[in-house]
Design a protein around this nucleic acid. Structure first.
Length: 750
DNA sequence: GACCTGCTGCGGATTG
């Protein structure tokens, strides 16, 4: 911000409505932000889509709404209806925005309405009875409007000037994003015209792909505004920790030793890291990203006890998606309260969304799930004038007398270092390739039928697939999908060939659980003295009298009520954090290539601490002593280890392809283990595989045992699900074939 | 060796 940049001097400022200019003066802003300067002219045009990307707290909301308010004030309309529709992924975000926008738009007497599950009946009735100004909504509540007020949609949105998608990146590549695209498309079809779409986002790897996610069919001018915010300095340190085998003395220092056997579960590394965190972070506010709910609980409980032991008030608070809303709000309040220090140990819940202000620093425990997540997390720190600060803690296993090479390679450390290096180069994962999204098509098809009462199959195909967002689904699959839904009593055809809801379809659509496009797991409710502490997945094994760590405290399971899915707890001394389940994070090919470069290099990154440097050097020496520069195959007992340095999608394809040739293969971090095979046999196998060309994804898909991964998949036939798997970019046959060829050459040269 | 998100409208009884 330069001193002479007064709002007057800005051409964008001068194009805003005088009422809005006065509001800006009252804010005492020294100038408009870069992102605002650049976005305002495009939004004012009103005839193009705009993707606006800038870091957290750079004023993206104002970049969209200063010009939108100007358009509303300068071109008043006589038509009743909402003029701007804002779609947001979180209720908490809508509540924050509602406050902020009421202040900004209130100055021009532009009403701001909100609609989501927690908004009272009277507030939502008021909005639909007198629709005007701005409407903030979730995709699910918008879905409900289409189903329950289908015929009113054109009049509710008659004067619509723009659709704003907040946190665009949260919608890309997932079911909810597909639902959102479909709803925006259906709204434009109902209005019989297009409306500009504005996408706001903090972390976008590829602006062009983001623009495509905002409007997949193109066909409307698009402008991209990317405000990088200059090359800001980051303070970063990566700590390596070598775990020791757990001994009884583990906890002796600090007087934290407990007689409880469960206390031995956390390996020494966790205790070492907890001590480092306690010593470094105490006395200020920070965020600790622990990757898994189980680890959030482990560290919360331990750090809380360390505060007790030092006779200081607790300043460590847990935050994750299975904690009750009330407990999460306690943590959020503690973070916002600047009068005392508070550090949250969290999962991705505090990556975006709720406005907690900036913290002093961020700690990352273990490798982050992606470079994009790492950057988003780092952005949470850096108060006014301070550089963002990040500390990473990576644990490596102890080396036994005959250490496994996969341990000696120190892969956690190299993966994390690779991600940090890539973040430094401003690289982040590109967006996932589009899947056909059959499950969400089922939802949208049933919703369209409910919206219109009856509609021809041809019109549905044209609306949703041919000219809509489900363009990967061709007429053959669409027909099969209609047959599957008819078999399940979801849809039937009338004599004049219109689609209507059948018995079970009627029942499905008329329950509120239909509005969400994504699947939600069945859970137990955890209760103590009538208060809900949070929830646990039903498949989490829990028995009565078992100890449990939850919400950072120790409990005993008093009673499991399987009828009502409630677990009653009572305070106790022992216990371990529960397992919450879940899949695995997907590592991108670029990260694996960067890891290989780090192994092959001679440079040790300066941001590693002493222990980290030692472990890093071990990894490089192991790589070199096993000649992994030249070979991708290593003998490991009776097995072989393959090091193809591929992304996880290609690894998965390769493994599925190998298992079709009657060998046992599994992924071990960056490597593939093939059981009980000699180097010669592997060489022969690879030659045969390569000679037959890339594998057929249809054939590989047949071996995928559970294909029903999304909400409405149980309504679809196996054939259609296999088609989706094969078609959906989950396999990379060509990449796997290339890896096999290069390894095949490799074995022949040996 | 994973995380997160969301959820209606109506009818009927009661009260001021």
């Amino acid at each position: 911000m330069s001193l002479n940049s007064d709002p007057h001097a800005s051409s964008a400022f001068e194009r805003l409505h005088p009422t809005i200019q006065r509001w800006i003066w009252r804010q005492k802003w020294p100038s408009l932000r870069e992102v605002q300067e650049r976005a305002i002219p495009h939004v004012l045009r009103g005839d193009c889509d705009v993707v606006i990307s800038a870091t957290t707290a750079a004023g993206k909301t104002e970049a969209a709404f200063l010009p939108l308010a100007t358009r509303i004030l300068e071109q008043p309309t006589a038509q009743a209806g909402f003029q701007v529709l804002v779609i947001s992924p979180l209720k908490a975000l809508i509540n924050d925005q509602h406050e902020r926008l009421r202040d900004l738009l209130g100055s021009g007497d532009i009403p701001v309405h909100r609609r989501h599950g927690d908004v009272s009946q009277s507030e939502r009735n008021r909005a639909v009875r007198k629709p005007d100004g701005v409407l903030l909504i979730t995709p699910e509540s918008l879905e409900a409007l289409f189903i329950n007020r289908g015929h009113q949609i054109p009049s509710l949105f008659a004067p619509l000037r723009a659709m704003v998608v907040d946190e665009l990146h949260a919608f890309i590549g997932v079911e909810r994003g597909m639902q959102l695209q479909s709803l925006m498309h259906r709204l434009e079809m109902a209005l019989r015209r297009r409306a500009p779409r504005l996408g706001l986002s903090a972390t976008l790897g590829d602006m062009q792909m983001a623009a495509e996610a905002l409007r997949p069919d193109g066909g409307f001018p698009q402008e991209l505004v990317l405000a990088e915010g200059g090359g800001q300095c980051i303070r970063l340190k990566l700590y390596g920790v070598e775990n020791r085998e757990a001994h009884d003395e583990e906890d002796g220092e600090e007087g934290l030793k407990s007689n409880d056997d469960n206390d031995r579960h956390p390996l020494n590394g966790d205790i070492a890291v907890a001590h480092m965190l306690f010593q470094t972070l105490r006395g200020d506010s920070h965020l600790i990203f622990a990757n898994a709910r189980n680890r959030v609980e482990l560290y919360s409980e331990r750090l809380r006890r360390m505060c007790d032991h030092h006779r200081v008030p607790n300043e460590f608070w847990p935050h994750h998606g299975s904690l009750s809303k009330a407990l999460r709000e306690d943590t959020e309040r503690a973070l916002k309260d600047s009068s005392r220090p508070a550090t949250a140990i969290c999962t991705s819940t505090l990556e975006m969304g709720i406005d907690i202000g900036k913290v002093r620093s961020v700690a990352q425990l273990g490798s982050p799930p992606s470079v994009a997540a790492l950057r988003q997390r780092l952005g949470r720190s850096g108060r006014r004038g301070e550089a963002p600060q990040l500390r990473l803690y990576v644990q490596e296993p102890p080396l036994t007398e005959k250490p496994a090479i996969t341990d000696q390679l120190r892969q956690h450390l190299f993966q994390t270092t690779a991600m940090v290096t890539l973040m430094g180069r401003r690289w982040i994962e590109p967006l996932e390739s589009q899947r056909p999204h059959l499950s969400t098509l089922v939802q949208q098809l049933l919703s369209v039928v409910a919206q219109w009462g009856e509609i021809s199959a041809a019109d549905c195909f044209s609306l949703l697939c041919e000219n809509g967002p489900f363009h990967r689904i061709k007429i053959a699959q669409f027909k099969q999908l209609l047959r599957d839904l008819a078999d399940k009593k979801m849809l039937r055809q009338t004599q004049d060939l219109k689609l209507i809801l059948d018995r079970d379809g009627e029942q499905l659509v008329n329950h509120y659980s239909f509005y969400a496009a994504f699947q939600s797991p069945k859970t137990f409710r955890l209760m103590h003295q009538g208060k809900t502490l949070g929830e646990l997945p039903v498949d989490s094994p829990l028995v009565e009298k078992q100890g449990l760590v939850f919400a950072g405290l120790r409990w005993l399971v008093k009673h499991v009520d399987t009828e009502n899915l409630i677990i009653h707890l009572t305070p106790a001394q022992g216990g371990t954090p529960p397992l919450f389940g879940g899949g695995g994070a997907e590592v991108h090919a670029q990260v694996r290539l960067e890891m290989r470069d780090l192994y092959m290099g001679t440079i040790i990154p300066p941001f590693l601490d002493e222990q980290g440097k030692r472990l890093f050097q071990q990894g490089q020496e192991t790589f070199s002593s096993h000649h992994l520069h030249h070979t991708a195959l290593l003998a490991s007992g009776k097995d072989l280890l393959l090091f193809p340095w591929l992304g996880d999608a290609t690894m998965f394809t390769f493994i599925a392809w190998l298992t079709r040739h009657d060998v046992e293969a599994s992924q071990e971090w960056s490597a593939i283990r093939v059981s009980d095979i000699t180097m010669d046999d592997m060489g022969d196998l690879l030659s045969r595989m390569v000679a037959n060309g890339p594998p057929d994804p249809q054939v590989l898909a047949r071996d995928v045992r559970e294909k029903r991964t999304e909400k409405h998949h149980p309504l679809l036939s196996d054939g259609l699900l296999a088609w989706e798997w094969a078609e959906g970019g989950r396999f990379d046959p060509h990449g796997a074939w290339e890896a096999a060829s290069s390894m095949s050459d490799n074995t022949h040269r040996q």
